[in-house]
């Protein structure tokens, strides 16, 4: 981030941008036109967006941009997620879901003669289905504003898994505790194709202000 941009983008601007993008968090950008400065920031084309390949998630540290055209299905996101958060390695309990989408993914996936792999990530809902469904209020907001599972309270009932429309939380069969994405960024950091990318809010704000 250059100093120039930093000077122009203040704390309030950042907050504003984030509030704007929260409105469409987890939704595909299909149907929208996106200015050149923003496209280059997201590393995608308008055609990617038109085809529904690009989805954004508002996270505390920036805008998570997911581009399925770039995903090569290596599962490093899932492996890194569990290595960092669980100290073990697994695809099933990973907080983002790629491997279950490799072969059959709606009308796409290998078996539909398609090489689409989609790394599905937690929407970080403003009004979270998982948290609302938890009978023991084990899903709480941490000091970064992220909903996390309080393992001391979690009874592993799976209500959160069922309630989440995308079934993103997972009850770990070994610990009997649920886990969900805590926005740690390990998946993004280790993505070898940049299919997952977190763009800092400053940069998003600067690009947005260029347009306005």
């Amino acid at each position: 981030m250059s100093n120039e941009i930093k000077e122009k983008v203040g704390f309030l601007d950042r907050q504003m941008t984030r509030r704007q993008f929260l409105k469409i968090s987890g939704k595909s950008l299909v149907g929208l036109t996106v200015a050149g400065s923003m496209l280059s920031l997201f590393g995608c084309t308008q055609e990617d967006i038109d085809k529904g390949l690009v989805t954004t998630w508002a996270m505390p540290q920036g805008l998570l941009v997911v581009n399925e055209a770039k995903c090569t299905g290596c599962e490093r996101c899932e492996l890194n997620c569990t290595l960092v958060n669980d100290g073990v390695v697994s695809t099933h309990i990973a907080r983002l879901k790629l491997s279950r989408n490799l072969h059959i993914y709606g009308d796409k996936g290998m078996y539909n003669n398609d090489f689409t792999y989609f790394p599905d990530t937690c929407r970080q809902c403003e009004d979270p289905w998982c948290g609302n469904a938890c009978p023991v209020q084990a899903i709480v907001t941490d000091d970064r504003g992220i909903r996390v599972v309080d393992e001391a309270k979690c009874v592993g009932c799976g209500a959160c898994v069922e309630a989440c429309p995308w079934h993103m939380p997972t009850v770990n069969p070994e610990t009997k505790k649920s886990s969900k994405c805590i926005a740690c960024g390990a998946c993004v950091e280790g993505c070898p194709s940049g299919a997952l990318e977190i763009v800092p809010w400053d940069a998003v704000t600067a690009a947005a202000q260029d347009i306005v």
């Binding site: 409105k23 469409i24 036109t33 200015a35 923003m38 970080q124 403003e126 504003g145 909903r147 947005a208």
Partner: peptide
């Protein structure tokens, strides 16, 4: 098609969990 930033501005405000 609607421009992204215009579209965002047109949507109702949401609570910012990271307020």
């Amino acid at each position: 098609k609607v421009e992204l930033t215009d579209f965002l501005a047109s949507l109702p405000d949401v609570e910012d969990p990271y307020e």
